[in-house]
Design a protein around this nucleic acid. Structure first.
Lengths: 342, 342
DNA sequence: CTACATTATGACACCGGTGTCAAAGTACAT
DNA sequence: ATGTACTTTGACACCGGTGTCATAATGTAG
C-alpha cells in the first residue's frame, strides 16, 4: 500500500474501497457516514500518513484557522535583537493562539518598507494582529486600505484620535499616573522624564501625560529641561541621562518611558556616582525580565503581556465572528522594587 | 468598478477586457504578455485592491514560501512565560525568514500532546523547524513519520545517535569543556553540576560530558554526589542548589546547564551566605539577557542565537532545494563576567 | 404490496489560481 | 501568394479538498 508523493483523499478512497466524498466526510467525522466505514477510512488514512491539504481545504471553505501577526521592527536599526517586550508579546500571542486552536503566521516588517504582507495575507489568515511601536502617522493610509478591504484586524498600542481601528493597549495614561503618585509618596520633588514625548510615539506620549498631570496637581512642574528624548533602547536611555547630568539638571526622581531606557539610565546614574534610590528614584515601564535582575532591581509599571496576548487574540476572534467589540484598556500595575525603596 | 467580496482574477479580467489567463500572467510579469496589456491589468488590480489568493496559488504550485516552526513547550508547566532562550531563537528565526523572503508559521506544541501540527502543516509550509528541549525518546517515532513522508525539516538541539534527522546545534560538548577549563584556570578543585544529565535532555547531557571529561583529565572527579538534577527553570536551579548545600557537599565551583538554573543557584548561594566568586565560581549556559543584568553578573557559555536562527533557516532552504547538507555545529563562546572573576 | 422516511453513498460542480496547448495575428523572407 | 517564425492571447484541465444533490439501500407504516 503505497502512493507516489503525498497521499491524497483519492488514494485513501482507492484503498478503502469507497468514494473520495465519503473519505472526506469520514475524516471530518460527519454523522452521515457509517461507523464501520469511518473506521476503515481512518485506518487507511493513518497507514498512509495522510493529512488534509490545508491549501485545498482553506481554498474551498474560505477560512484558515490561522491568524497573522505583523511585527514592526522597532525604530532602532539594531540587527541582532528584537525588543524584549515585543518578544514577550509574541510569545504570549503564540500561546493564546494555540489555546484557541489557531495557528499563527508571523511576518516581520520593516516600518519603512512596503507592507509586503499586509492584506496580502488576507487570504491565508482569518485576521491580523498589528504589533509594534509605529510611526503611526504612516500607518494611517495603510490602515485605510485594510478597513476598505474589510480585513479583520486589531492593533496593539495607543488609541489615536480619528483612527477607526480596534485597539488593545495598556492604560498608558494611568500607568504614568501611578508612577507619579509613587514618586510623590516617596517625597520626591524634582522629576525628569526620559523618552520620546511626541506624537511619533503615542504610547510614550500618553505615559508622559499621565505622569505630568499628576505632578502638576501637586505643584511639581515638568518643564522642557526636565525631559530628555530617547527611543526604547538601553543605549539611548544611557545617553539621554548623561546629557541631563551634563546640563546640570537637578532631579531626585526619574521616570523612563520603558525599562530598557531605565536600565540605560541606571548605568549613567551609577557612573555619575549617584546613589539609587537615595539620591535618585527610578521607575521604568513594561516589567521586562531584566528589571527584576538588575541591581538595584527596577521599580516599574507592569504591562501584563499574557493578558494582552489573550485579549488581542480573543478580540480578533470576536471581530471575525462578527460580534460587536470595543477597544480594550488593560490595567497597569506598579511593581515596587529597590530603585524606589530600601 | 466594484466587486462583491474580495476581488478575483476574473473580476480583473472583466474590467480589463482580457481573459483570466492573461491576468494571471500579467500580474506575475510574465514576458509573454504585451507591455500595454500588463499596465492595464496592474492598474485595474490596484484599483480593486486585488491580491492573489495564496491558498489557490499554493495549491496549484505546491509550494508556499512559508516555513513552519514547531515550538515545544519546555518541561515546566508554567503557563506564563516561554523560556527566554527559545524566545530569542524564535525572534532570530523570524528575522532570518523575513530576510529570505519566507513567512513563518508558528505552532505551539505541548510535548505530551499529539503533535497536532506535525506534518499536518506539511502542505502549508515548504519545510519545518523543530525547536525545543524534547523528551527525544518520544520524538523518535514521530520523526520517523516525517522522514517517511519525506517532509523537509531540521531540528535544533543535540544530535542523537541513530537519528536520521538533520540538526543544527551548539557544540554543547565543547561548551562544557570551555566551562571546565575556565574553572580549572581559576584554580578551582571541587566542582558540581546542576541540570539533568540523562538521555532525556541530550543537550544537558552533552554539556555535562564535556565538562566531566576535562575535569577528569585534571584529576578532578565528578561523582554522583556532585550532580544535582534540575530542569531549566530558576526555581528548579534554586532548589537543586539548596539540596546540595543541605547535603553538605563541598564545592568551590558550580556549572549550571542553563542560565536560568544558574540564576536560581546564585540566589540559593547568596542566601546561604556564600560569596560569589570568592567562595564559589558560577558558570551558566546560553547567555540570556538576564545573565548580564544579575549581580554578580553571570559568566556563561554563549549560544549565538542569531547565527543559529540563520543556520536553521538556510539549512532548511538548502534541504528544500535538494542540496546535500550536513549537521551544523555552532561554536560556543565563553563570556567571562563577575561570577568567575573580580 | 405500495408509500414514504431514513440512512449511506457516489457524482459532480466549485474554490481561485497556474501551466499547457492551440490558435489568431503580425512580420518577414522566399 | 506561400511558408516560417515569433508574439500574444484564450480555452481548458488541474491542484485537492468541500458541499449539494441525486440515488441506492433499508426500514416500516398503512
Amino acid at each position: 500500500m503505497k502512493t507516489k508523493g503525498k497521499a491524497t483523499s483519492f488514494d485513501i478512497a482507492h484503498f478503502a474501497g469507497v468514494s473520495q466524498s465519503t473519505v472526506s466526510r469520514a475524516l471530518r467525522n460527519s454523522p452521515l457516514v457509517n461507523e464501520e466505514t469511518r473506521r476503515k477510512v481512518w485506518e487507511v488514512a493513518k497507514k498512509l500518513n495522510y493529512k488534509v491539504d490545508k491549501n485545498a481545504s482553506n481554498l474551498r471553505t474560505q477560512q484558515s484557522a490561522t491568524l497573522a501577526i505583523l511585527l514592526f521592527e522597532d525604530p532602532t536599526g539594531d540587527e541582532s535583537q528584537i525588543n524584549p517586550f515585543f518578544l514577550n508579546m509574541l510569545g504570549s500571542i503564540t500561546r493564546a493562539c494555540a489555546k484557541e486552536g489557531y495557528d499563527l503566521l508571523v511576518s516581520f516588517q520593516s516600518i519603512s518598507q512596503d507592507w509586503r504582507a499586509e492584506y496580502e495575507d488576507s487570504h491565508r489568515a482569518d485576521g491580523i494582529i498589528l504589533l509594534g511601536y509605529g510611526d503611526y502617522m504612516d500607518y494611517q493610509s495603510r490602515l485605510q486600505n485594510l478597513l476598505a478591504q474589510d480585513t479583520k484586524f486589531v492593533c496593539w498600542g495607543a488609541k489615536v484620535e480619528g483612527r477607526q481601528d480596534l485597539t488593545v493597549s495598556c492604560d498608558n495614561y494611568g500607568g504614568g499616573q501611578l508612577a507619579a503618585k509613587h514618586l510623590i509618596a516617596n517625597g520626591r520633588k524634582h522629576c525628569v522624564f526620559i523618552g520620546d514625548a511626541s506624537e511619533h510615539s503615542p504610547e510614550f506620549l500618553t505615559r508622559f501625560k499621565g505622569f505630568k498631570d499628576i505632578l502638576e496637581q501637586h505643584n511639581i512642574p515638568l518643564g522642557e529641561r526636565n525631559i530628555a528624548n530617547a527611543i526604547s533602547t538601553e543605549d539611548s536611555g544611557y545617553h539621554a541621562t548623561r546629557s541631563l547630568l551634563a546640563n546640570n539638571v537637578k532631579f531626585d526622581a526619574l521616570f523612563a518611558a520603558s525599562d530598557l531606557i531605565a536600565i540605560g539610565a541606571i548605568k549613567a546614574l551609577k557612573e555619575a556616582g549617584l546613589k539609587i534610590p537615595e539620591d535618585v528614584n527610578v521607575i521604568g515601564f513594561d516589567n521586562i525580565a531584566a528589571a527584576n535582575y538588575i541591581t538595584p532591581s527596577l521599580t516599574t509599571i507592569q504591562q501584563n503581556t499574557t493578558l494582552a496576548g489573550q485579549m488581542l487574540v480573543s478580540n480578533l476572534l470576536s471581530l471575525i465572528r462578527g460580534e460587536e467589540i470595543t477597544d480594550t484598556l488593560l490595567p497597569p500595575k506598579l511593581i515596587i522594587r529597590e530603585t524606589t525603596s530600601k
